[in-house]
Design a protein around this nucleic acid. Sequence first.
DNA 1: CGATCAATTGAAATCGTTCAACTGACGTGG
DNA 2: CCACGTCAGTTGAACGATTTCAATTGATCG
Lengths: 218, 218
Amino acid sequence: MTQFTSVLEGATHWPVSFRKGYVIYDEDETPKAMYRVDRGCVRLQVNGSDGDRQIIAFLFPGDVFGFSLDRRTTSAEAVTDLELTRYSLQSVLDLSTRSREVTVGLLNSANALYGDLARHVDQITHLSAMERVLWFLNWLMRHQHTPKAANTVALPMSRRDIGDYLGLAPETLSRALKQLRAKGYVTLHGRRGFTLKPPALAFHVSDFSEFSTVVSAA
Amino acid sequence: MTQFTSVLEGATHWPVSFRKGYVIYDEDETPKAMYRVDRGCVRLQVNGSDGDRQIIAFLFPGDVFGFSLDRRTTSAEAVTDLELTRYSLQSVLDLSTRSREVTVGLLNSANALYGDLARHVDQITHLSAMERVLWFLNWLMRHQHTPKAANTVALPMSRRDIGDYLGLAPETLSRALKQLRAKGYVTLHGRRGFTLKPPALAFHVSDFSEFSTVVSAA
DNA sequence: CGATCAATTGAAATCGTTCAACTGACGTGG
DNA sequence: CCACGTCAGTTGAACGATTTCAATTGATCG
């Protein structure tokens, strides 16, 4: 991914900034550009007609997104104030005809996103509320590129955002967090930061069946 | 998308057959080929360690899948006996350096599949069991390329497969079908066929009625 | 035509949602 | 710099949908 970004320097690009809540692009639009996150957090989402929302992915500095040619299939919004690099899609395509590296990079990125989303579906349907939250916090910790202290991570998105990502009502998320706090798995710092404790760090989806047993027993 | 398949004729390819249940490729394998479905039905899935399974997509004749360069992120299995066309990944990549059409086709396929999966997540988290089943049956009807009679469609996959696709227990699926039958929305023909009645045909969730032609790359 | 296993049905339990009320974190203005 | 107001977030209680476990049916295949 990082290599890929450096290869993209050959394409036309320039920096852009957006404020929290800004809609970078919407579903069904015709794409003209793709982006790399330089600072802040972006969410990709599908919007239901009735206000329901499914967040598909959270993106952080270094992540590249929006490389669709035909039509946007998701929308992208600014979770926080943003600094992005905007690449002209046309120039990236031109570049890819000359550089196999770019083509391979684009396809690998697409495939990686697909794999992540496939696993996301799996988690949502097979894990309990608390397991999903723990999975999310672990994932977030590994992806945050600006750790404050050991295992302490910023939580840039709202509870509603997290709920819409995990397929949980905000109330359920709140209760799950409460239990995790009570168990000593996590410490919250205000509303926008947390620390994962050792037992939570040991979390792997595979050996997680034991976890739920432990919790229900206690 | 059909154009895309014809462009692929320039790559090295040959026909292959698999029997029901065959694992075409598994997660984490290094990809060597991609495929087009000529006859039968394929499922893409993520396998949990404990036997849990999430089916990501069902593929039918005309659909292209298995396009990843780095590592498989899902596995592919034969729902029915299959006839596929197998394309050497190497030759497709070579072709793409000479033909922008191939590159664009691959990227569009990947993007279409991503959009489909994004909507799939949305459906699973926001629709009730009965809505999901109705959505699935409608989708299936539009994708089956071998209609027997008006609105009558083959149901090539097992109940368990459908459940694993929709995120429902087989029992829940069974009960949902029972209700749909009672309401006169659907008629089942044995275990492997069904007819959608007018009220079910009217079922329409605004934001995913559009993508009837799905070409897949994973 | 019978055996077998997928599919269905029933009943009870579980988990998450919903609706409603409350709390407190955070930003704003004095 | 502190007090205040606001709204995100939390808590409580009842409800409801889906799951789970167990038993039965019946479609399909040899």
